[in-house]
């Protein structure tokens, strides 16, 4: 079994070179280690993401996959203890969370927060203007922004009335996730990390969200899907599937790997990995 795993990895590395030879490296994570409240969650994670790619990161609860997304976005509760993250060639870990965002990193939250009293429209405009400001451009006025945002609503089939409600307040689970994709559509990030965006969604909402992600994926940007289930990957087809366990990527494959995980569960990958380690 262990031989199979090694062979499979070798095969993938080869194809990767062939397909993505000339693409820009957007994210390069080397030996990333991170802890929360002193307990280590990420234990040496390595990942490279190039323009035009869609990666899926899968794993059991507590494997560290969500932590990985939060560390990349700069959540203050997590402490990076070791490793390096280059984002478009820049040291990502030296940047404040808002600088990472205006630099082109976008995290779609697993549990988007509610901000009572702030309209979705105002929130989106302030966010969009911070991006313009960071790029040295003039801020957009209210009217031009209204035109822009209404155009983006189509991507997630959202009604304009959502813009005048408080941010995520009283939104259903599906509406909150669609609102995350709307923000992504507006901010046009270089790298999007979707943290369990599919969890808790019914099939229609899942299709809408997936269609939004597909519409926004281009040859210049990249997407990392963090998910527990293979279901999302039927609609957003990944180039690579990584399995995370105990804070490391223990296996990398293509979309067939996700299918296999769905059918056989995670135990066999974990066993393989421990045999390799021995």
């Amino acid at each position: 079994m262990s031989g199979w795993a090694l062979e499979s990895n070798a095969y993938l590395m080869e194809t990767k070179v062939v397909i993505q030879e000339n693409s820009e490296v957007i994210l390069s994570v080397t030996n990333l280690q991170a802890a929360i409240d002193g307990s280590e969650i990420l234990k040496g994670l390595n990942l490279e993401v190039k323009a035009g790619e869609i990666h899926a990161i899968m794993g059991l609860n507590g494997s560290g996959k969500s932590t990985f997304s939060k560390v990349l976005a700069g959540h203050p509760d997590y402490e990076v203890t070791s490793g390096e993250v280059l984002f478009q060639g820049q040291n990502l870990l030296a940047l404040e969370p808002h600088e990472r965002a205006t630099g082109g990193l976008f995290l779609a939250f697993q549990y988007p927060l509610e901000i009572p009293g702030v309209s979705n429209r105002d929130f989106l405009r302030v966010a969009y203007n911070s991006h313009l400001k960071a790029q040295g451009q003039a801020e957009i006025d209210v009217f031009d922004f209204d035109d822009l945002i209404e155009e983006k609503l189509d991507v997630v089939k959202m009604d304009a009335s959502f813009l005048d409600r408080s941010v995520n307040e009283g939104f259903s689970g599906g509406e909150k996730k669609r609102n995350e994709i709307l923000q992504m559509a507006l901010l046009a990030p270089k790298l999007t990390i979707l943290d369990e965006t599919d969890s808790g969604l019914d099939i229609d909402a899942l299709k809408t969200v997936a269609s939004g992600v597909n519409q926004l994926a281009t040859a210049e940007n990249a997407t990392v899907l963090i998910t527990h289930y293979q279901r999302l990957l039927n609609y957003v087809v990944p180039d690579y599937v990584h399995v995370v366990a105990d804070g490391r990527i223990i296996r990398t494959g293509d979309k067939e790997l996700a299918q296999e995980l769905e059918e056989r569960g995670y135990e066999w990958v974990l066993e393989d990995a421990s045999e390799v380690a021995v």
Partner: peptide, 20 residues
């Protein structure tokens, strides 16, 4: 953090939350 992750500076995020 949520607002910051959308590119909004911490000062502006505080302002927006108090406003809300």
């Amino acid at each position: 953090f949520y607002l910051q992750s959308r590119g909004i500076s911490p000062n502006q995020a505080q302002q927006l939350l108090i406003y809300g």
